[in-house]
Amino acid sequence: MRAGVAIFAVAHNTFREAIRDKVLYGIVFFGVLGLAGTYVLSELASYESARVVRDLALAGSNLLAILVAIVLGVTLLHKEVDRRTAYAILPKPLHRWQFVIGKFCGMAATLIALCVLLAGVVEALLRTQASTIDGPTAVALVLSLLEVLVVTAVAVTLSCWTRPFLSGLLTAGIFILGRSAEEIGALAARAEGPMRLVFDALHKGLPNLYLFQVSGWEVAGKRVSIHGTFVDWAYVASAATYAGLCIVGALAIAVLLFRRRDFV
């Protein structure tokens, strides 16, 4: 109970920090402006403009949320140490693991709020095409949020290990490789010798972000699309379980890295 109170206090403060951060507002403002640009593109499309808006708005909002997750995630703990604000907080009756988990939870709350805002923008854009967020689009938005949370956990973990620039690059690299997990798996099956080991390690060691972006691909032998037959909520539940495991694994590493750290 007491552990939860401390985690909530850290999370609340992290959320408060994010929503008072002018840099975040700048990124979101220009991101939303970019999303609004899909309306212009849809006007240029000769047919199925609603489909164009749906595709571009979903992809744009996902990339914007991923960008914010990386930028905020890699600086999350580094800022506390660099600005020495953690020096006054860590001596309080609080375990270091509670601090790391609290920071992540605050960041997750911020990103959930951001994704809700972006979903609102997607809905507004769809309405310009006399459409709305339907079942498959809602599922796609939830899967996108799960992916964002996994990327955040990776960013937080790397920020415990190295400086923001490098951890940003590494997180972006993991994001790209994670999205290509199926292709890497196929390469592992075809490759031989040491390359097979490398591809296999990448396929099994990195989070499989492909699971969260399945529209236009095959799932269980069937092609799925947000414009037709898409994955159901049972699939979302299994993806959420997988995301949860990835987050727990990443945060466990983050806690281990942070636990014995000297604050010189």
Binding site: N13, R16, E17, R20, D21, R83, R84, T85, Y87, A88, P91
Partner: peptide
């Protein structure tokens, strides 16, 4: 504990 030259969350 009061750290040397303390830094606090400036947005608070």
């Amino acid at each position: 504990f009061l750290p040397e030259s303390p830094y606090f969350y400036e947005y608070l």
